[in-house]
């Protein structure tokens, strides 16, 4: 199947600013490699889950794909078009087809605009509809996401967090896009509201034939809704594959520790706990070699010097670890 979205060797680096004194005294540039040489594909109609802890670069990757921040290197191809090469006008037109839903239902809606203005904005920007027609389309999508048409003239602060997230979803969908980056859309919500929004996103996907890149730090959410999952650590994808396969048989030690850390409700579902040493290293000074080696209980000498290359470990399942061939697993190694 031809993928709808292909990301090839995408990198996004941030350079720290140097003042005059630092430049004169020759303090070197510090570069944060927020996203480093990431490649992935998303098939039409698929949900690719992107998982990782804070600071791993998953949101930066999602935004770089949409060119909300400009990638430094690499290519993003959407439906045969190289998005990274588009001029501003072509990019604007492409934005109608690629959308984003944000995490924070409070910061993502302009407090001074009504629901009708917020949700109707894409119609206006892309000249899709105006006046009564635009209002009718806006009303329809607002009702579809579970709000009432008579709430169109209200302001964001008159809604609860869950309702505001629905407004954000309506805004992303009103221009009939094909691909949505969902950037932690349920992380800020209460459990019962979270379930409502997940159900809504899945319904809308089915009805409108959408494709999602679903970014989350919650493995349960990804496990429930994604078809495939990519695991990120310090700007790189360390493991990627079908979600069942990765959850049942994680191959990278980071994925293994991540899965074992999730609190389980069912007592029989509890996995042996793998305790990671220490905290996430500063992305300003990432470790050499394999970036996980400072916290990895399985690290050997080669891990400190040489970055591992992603290998196939099963059908459509890749992982990047020097110790894959040995078949060493963290679960067995720690004997927990």
């Amino acid at each position: 199947m031809k993928p709808l979205l292909t990301v090839e060797h995408l990198s996004k680096h941030y350079e720290s600013r140097r003042g005059l004194v630092e430049r004169l005294t020759g303090v070197p540039h510090t570069v944060v490699r927020a996203v480093n040489d990431v490649s992935l594909t998303v098939a039409k109609g698929e949900i690719l889950g992107l998982i990782g802890e804070s600071g791993c670069g998953k949101s930066t990757l999602g935004r770089a794909i949409l060119r909300l921040n400009e990638p430094n290197a690499g290519k993003v191809v959407f439906d045969g078009t190289d998005v990274t090469a588009l001029d501003p006008l072509a990019l604007k037109n492409m934005r109608r087809r690629m959308q984003i839903i944000f995490q924070d239902p409070y910061a993502s809606l302009n407090p001074r605009r009504t629901v009708a203005e917020i949700v109707g904005l894409p119609l206006k920007l892309h000249g899709l509809a105006s006046g009564e027609e635009a209002r009718a389309i806006t009303a329809r999508i607002v009702e579809r996401v579970g709000l009432k048409a008579n709430q169109l003239d209200r302001y964001p602060h008159q809604f609860s967090g869950g309702q505001r997230q629905r407004i954000g979803i309506a805004r992303a969908l009103v221009s009939n896009p094909e691909f949505i980056v969902c950037d932690e859309p349920v992380s800020a919500l209460d459990v019962s509201i979270q379930a409502q929004i997940i159900a809504l996103l899945l319904e809308l996907k089915r009805e409108m034939g959408l494709t999602y890149l679903f970014i989350s730090h919650d493995i349960s959410v990804i496990g429930y809704l994604a078809d495939r999952v990519a695991v990120m650590y310090l700007g790189e994808i360390v493991e990627m594959g079908p979600v069942d396969d990765v959850l049942a048989n994680p191959r990278h030690p980071y994925t293994q520790s991540l899965l074992s850390a999730v609190p389980e409700i069912e007592p029989h579902g509890r996995k042996p706990r793998v305790r990671l040493k220490g905290d996430l290293p500063s992305p300003l000074h990432p470790p050499s070699g394999c970036k996980f080696h400072t916290r990895c209980p399985l690290a050997i000498d080669i891990c400190r010097t040489l970055a591992p290359v992603s290998e196939n470990v099963g059908p459509g399942h890749q992982a990047a670890c020097h110790r894959l061939a040995e078949g060493v697993s963290l679960m067995s190694e720690t004997g927990a």
Binding site: D190, I193, Q194, S220, Y224
Partner: peptide, 20 residues
Amino acid sequence: ASIPRPGLRGQPIRPIEGQV
């Protein structure tokens, strides 16, 4: 029932309707 679980994939989630 609201907590998404990998084991329930493909089955519809049954959220509590409405709000507090």
